[in-house]
Design a protein around this nucleic acid. Structure first.
Length: 376
RNA sequence: GGGGAGGUAGCGAAGUGGUUAAACGCAGCAGACUGUAAAUCUGCCCUCUAAUGAGUUCGAUGGUUCGAAUCCGUCCCUCCCCA
C-alpha cells in the first residue's frame, strides 16, 4: 500500500494524502511535470527541486527508442542517468497509441509503432512494456493501454476498454512475475478507459480492481470532450475507485481542470501544458494567462507575477523575458518554464493546504474567480 | 569616360503580356497548445470594410495592346568591372 490518507476535506471529495516510493514520498494532490525523454525540457533536477516538484513523469516509448534499454541499464536506471533522485512515474506509451495515430497498428498482442525518429518498427506488448519500465527503474509504472479520442462511438470505446483490460491482466502478471532490476521496489498502476460511457467506465474499474494494482489512473480524458463531460466522467470514476489507493487523472491539464478534478477526489496529475506553453511564450499567473511574446509586454519592468517566488520572477523583468523570447534565446524558454512549473506546484500546494483546512471548495471558487476575471 | 547588372509591398526575393493585390522567406500583429513526433502550429499582414466588396499598386513618365509588374521610348536612381 503506497497511499496514506491524511485528510478528507469535509466540503467536497478532495483529499490530502502521501504516496511513498523507493525514491521518497510525495504529497497529493500532486502535479508531475512531464519529462518525456528524461528531462523536463530546459530544466535541471535542481530546478525542479527549486520549483517544489516532488515527482516527475517520463515516457517508456521515448526512452525505449532513445537512449534505449542498454544505456538505461548501463547507467542503472533513469534516476542515475538523468540526476533526478526523487520519484519518477513512467507512462507506458499508451498515449502514443493515440498521438502517433498514423504510426501505429494495434492487435491483441500489442501495438506496433513506426519510430518517429527513423521509421523503424517496434512491437510494444503489455509484457515488454513492463520489462522496459523495469529497465528504466521508474518508481511507478503504467500499464500499456488503448486510448481513443473523444467523442468515440460506443463500440470503439468498448473495444478499447476491453483491450486495455486484457492487456492490464497480462501486464500485472508480468509485473508480479519479474523482479526489479535495481535494488528497490517499483509499483504499477492500472488505467481506466471507457470513453464517455458510464457503463464502460464501470466495467473497466471493476475489471481493474479484480486484477488489483498499486494505484488507479483515469485515462482517455482531455482528448476532445468538453469540461462538463470530463467532470462527469471523472466524478463517476472517483466515486467508484477505492479510497486507499492513489487516483491519477492522466494528462490533465489546465489549472481550472486540475482544481475541478481535485474537488472530485483525484490525487495525481501530469500535463505538458506548463512546460510546452512556457516554451511557446504562454505563462500562468493568478490573474490568468499571459502571452509574453505580445507587444504590450515590451516595456514591462515588473516580473511576470508580482510576489511570485519563482527564480524567474525573483530575478527578471517581464520585459526582459519578452525580449529573450522574441530573439529566440533559450533563456527565455527556460525562464517561462521555470515560472510555469513553479506556478503549477503552487497550485497543488495551496490546494493541499485548503483541503487540510476543509475549505477546498471555497478556495477553488476564489481562485477561479480571480483567474478568469477580466482585468483592464 | 567605356562596359555590365539592376530598381517589385517593412526587408529579402519570385514573377517577364491575361486565372497577379502580386509566390515564398523574414520581420510584424494576434490566437492555440491537456499521459510532448511541439523552441510548435493557425490566422492576419497595400488602403477602406464587421463581412461581402471597393479602391490604389510593382523607380518616374509617355507609348504599344482589348489587356502591362511583364513589350517600346525618355528620364531618375543604385551596384559591379575597366579607365
Amino acid at each position: 500500500m503506497i497511499y496514506t490518507a491524511q485528510h478528507q476535506d469535509t466540503s467536497c471529495s478532495a483529499r490530502y494524502g502521501i504516496v511513498t516510493t523507493a525514491h521518497g514520498t510525495f504529497e497529493t494532490p500532486a502535479f508531475m511535470p512531464v519529462g518525456t525523454i528524461g528531462t523536463v525540457k530546459t530544466l535541471t533536477p535542481q530546478d525542479l527541486l527549486d520549483c517544489n516538484v516532488q515527482i516527475m513523469l517520463s515516457n517508456t516509448y521515448h526512452l525505449y527508442l532513445r537512449p534505449g534499454l542498454e544505456i538505461l541499464q548501463h547507467f542503472g536506471g533513469l534516476h542515475r542517468l538523468n540526476g533526478w533522485r526523487g520519484p519518477i512515474l513512467t507512462d507506458s506509451g499508451g498515449f502514443q497509441v493515440y498521438s502517433l495515430d498514423e504510426l501505429k497498428k494495434i492487435d491483441e498482442n500489442g501495438v506496433t509503432f513506426k519510430s518517429h525518429w527513423d521509421g523503424s518498427k517496434h512491437l510494444f506488448t503489455p509484457e515488454n512494456v513492463v520489462d522496459t519500465q523495469r529497465a528504466i527503474g521508474s518508481d511507478i509504472m503504467m500499464v500499456l493501454d488503448y486510448l481513443t479520442g473523444n467523442p468515440s462511438e460506443f463500440s470503439l470505446a468498448d473495444e478499447a476498454h476491453q483491450q486495455t483490460l486484457r492487456w492490464a491482466e497480462r501486464a500485472r502478471e508480468q509485473f508480479l512475475n519479474t523482479p526489479p532490476l535495481y535494488d528497490y521496489p517499483q509499483y504499477q498502476f492500472g488505467i481506466v478507459q471507457g470513453g464517455v460511457y458510464d457503463e464502460l467506465r464501470a466495467a473497466s474499474i471493476e475489471g481493474l480492481l479484480k486484477i488489483g494494482f498499486d494505484g488507479y489512473a483515469i485515462g482517455g480524458l482531455a482528448v476532445g470532450e468538453s469540461a462538463d463531460v470530463r467532470r462527469k466522467v471523472t466524478a463517476f470514476c472517483t466515486e467508484r475507485l477505492p479510497k486507499d489507493y492513489p487516483r491519477y487523472l492522466m494528462g490533465v491539464g489546465k489549472p481550472e481542470d486540475i482544481l475541478d478534478a481535485i474537488e472530485l477526489g483525484v490525487d495525481m496529475f501530469d500535463c505538458v501544458i506548463p512546460s510546452r506553453n512556457g516554451r511557446n511564450g504562454s505563462v500562468f499567473t493568478r490573474d490568468g494567462r499571459l502571452n509574453l511574446r505580445n507587444n504590450k509586454h515590451k516595456q514591462a519592468k515588473l516580473p511576470i507575477e508580482e510576489g511570485c517566488g519563482c527564480f524567474s520572477c525573483q530575478h527578471f523583468s517581464l520585459g526582459y523575458i519578452h525580449h529573450m523570447l522574441r530573439v529566440n534565446e533559450m533563456l527565455g524558454m527556460r525562464l517561462t518554464t521555470l515560472h510555469n512549473i513553479f506556478f503549477y506546484q503552487q497550485l497543488v500546494r495551496e490546494a493541499r493546504e485548503a483541503i487540510r483546512e476543509n475549505r477546498f471548495a471555497t478556495h477553488k471558487r476564489e481562485f477561479l474567480s480571480r483567474y478568469f476575471k477580466e482585468t483592464g
